[in-house]
Design a protein around this nucleic acid. Sequence first.
DNA 1: CTATATATATCAGCGACCGGCATATGTTGT
DNA 2: ACAACATATGCCGGTCGCTGATATATATAG
Lengths: 118, 118
Amino acid sequence: MNERPLQEPTLLLLTALADEPRHGYGLIQEIDAISQGRVRMRTGTLYGALDRLVQQGLIRVEREEVVDGRARKVYALAEAGQDVLAAETERLRAVVAEAERRLAARRAHAIRPKGALA
Amino acid sequence: MNERPLQEPTLLLLTALADEPRHGYGLIQEIDAISQGRVRMRTGTLYGALDRLVQQGLIRVEREEVVDGRARKVYALAEAGQDVLAAETERLRAVVAEAERRLAARRAHAIRPKGALA
DNA sequence: CTATATATATCAGCGACCGGCATATGTTGT
DNA sequence: ACAACATATGCCGGTCGCTGATATATATAG
């Protein structure tokens, strides 16, 4: 029931799951890849967020498996999560476009078309 | 010194100032416009954030003026703020693009190119 | 003379994130 | 044999930005 905008770690989590179901540790790696190494999700953030998102119905536990003697919980994006992600990216895209438009105009102004003085 | 990603209200504040200097109340209106009425910045968020951003050197108090008997503080985007905004939009643009790419692929998969069965 | 718009400011509370710690198994290096 | 590292999940105290409420003050509209 929360209409508040997603924070970046949460946005990245949903994005990482939009692709295909993944388990917690795999999400850390995937997010590392998506963000080109700029975001290293902490386990404290991760598992807390996963519980919260399941609670909110944005993701669900797809299955639990054991690979090489290690237990895994595989999460999948739920439909509600897909909708939220779509709406969020849509809004963010508009904000980013506006910010870039203004930054470009700002730079154009700074250059001063006819002779830059001081 | 905080490299943490900006939250949306902060992002919108910097975006609203990228255009031209504005005072607090004007920022509320501008953000309302930018977000097409979807974000109504609260004064609690606003003035707290403005103080914080000045403290961080991302914006500065351009001037103080009195218009129609009402005091105003006009804020301007500092160079550090411009850099942070540019970096932030750049990263967000990549994340948004990736999210939309995955959502599109997801929908294409759901449609099933040749005969959708159940 | 009340309500609304303009304008700034503070504060308690909440919730997401951070960083550290704990636990356990498998692999690689020395 | 032992250390170090990668894989994998989980908890918890602290921090910090945002929310919502409240306060103050002037100008304008009804």
